[in-house]
Design a protein around this nucleic acid. Sequence first.
DNA 1: TAGATTGTTAATCGATTAACAATC
DNA 2: TAGATTGTTAATCGATTAACAATC
Lengths: 241, 241
Amino acid sequence: MSSRSSAESAREIPEATIARLPVYLRALTGLTESGIATCSSEELATAAGVNSAKLRKDLSYLGSYGTRGVGYDVEYLTYQIAREIGVTQDWPVVIVGIGNLGHALANYSGFRSRGFRVVALLDADLERAGQEVAGIAVRPFDELEQIVADNAVAIGVIATPAAAAQSVADRMVASGITSILNFAPSVLTVPAGVDVRKVDLSIELQILAYHEQRKAAVDPGSVPQGAVGSSAAALSPEGVS
Amino acid sequence: MSSRSSAESAREIPEATIARLPVYLRALTGLTESGIATCSSEELATAAGVNSAKLRKDLSYLGSYGTRGVGYDVEYLTYQIAREIGVTQDWPVVIVGIGNLGHALANYSGFRSRGFRVVALLDADLERAGQEVAGIAVRPFDELEQIVADNAVAIGVIATPAAAAQSVADRMVASGITSILNFAPSVLTVPAGVDVRKVDLSIELQILAYHEQRKAAVDPGSVPQGAVGSSAAALSPEGVS
DNA sequence: TAGATTGTTAATCGATTAACAATC
DNA sequence: TAGATTGTTAATCGATTAACAATC
């Protein structure tokens, strides 16, 4: 799936580690805001919600940025991780599909402070295009190629209905985008070299439901087991907005 | 983290498999909509975006629901997976925090068809409470305990700002909720027996940025490398809505 | 020097994959 | 019977973890 370049740098960072680096970065930001200048692997691990052995192992792939007997300098480690991830500079991003979710994404103020800059909002619906969301004009989807070229956009966000997602992805790839964050509930097919990550609300809920069901089974009566709906309703065809 | 009951049923399904069952379910729904009644592991795997060996291995944990030489009956397999996950019945869910994201979640029509029913929208802001979103009245957060009790709610969704998330989680847990889906960018501390899953927009984007940066490094010039922002901007304190 | 904590080793655990016997 | 495809085995790969030597 993800790019797996082989002989590039001395270190080859495992995927599982890469996925945790942003979590460490956020935990470090929290420490900075609390006025903490130095921390041990134990403290940082707690803030990030992992165990300290895993944290130290993860950081060891980046280099030796701590001091034995002392810990880590919060500011220095923050910079090193940000540099490793690649968010010491802002990445321009386009969001396609300005429905409810697109609105929420456009208004999400966390992007800017974490290395991203929304350069355009696009929607195929010409009614929506022309409006303004979060201070950014919504533009017709057809302007995608121009916008990607003008702003050197490498990352695209898809917040369209499932039916439109693949064709939006195709246009994104053709226009030069090589990383896609997909919120539409559909599997995207993209060429090698293009990375896709997927966020799916109901899949996350279903994973919780699985465990919830098991809790109820182990300890019947202790956990409320929801009102009884019909299985027909639960299994009916999708009506994704 | 997640519940790990030991001697419960004959099978002990791996976490990685559980996380993929909802993906298979969605792929099967797609096949049903296309009028396909039977499929091979190869076809279903393609629709789900995994390889067929992994799919068959995953399904083998549930039982033997296929026919050698033939494949799987789509409707039968759909039911078996839905039953395993626990979504043949509807799970009542509450959403706390009706900002932009809460709005989007409340309006997400996919919940209903996938085993969930939003029974209440809650917000601490009394201005918001009293409004109506997606046909559901927004109620004061203080009514949480009553609503959870009345509707036997086991699953809660947090869409509040980061600063409020932990206290909302505490109240949820105290009220009897044992599964939480957290959209706020903060690490939640909960008692054993409570499951938390986290969805984080900027973490997903940062993972993409990491790989994007590597692509640019391997093949300079071929991939646009975004406008140059200041590292100060990228690392400034959070401004999460 | 004594205490603390990192960075690394090595063992363990879990997940993935290819191959194929079972069987429709 | 011949062809197709599942379910399972076993090998491989990657991730986690505890323990501790290195070193501040």
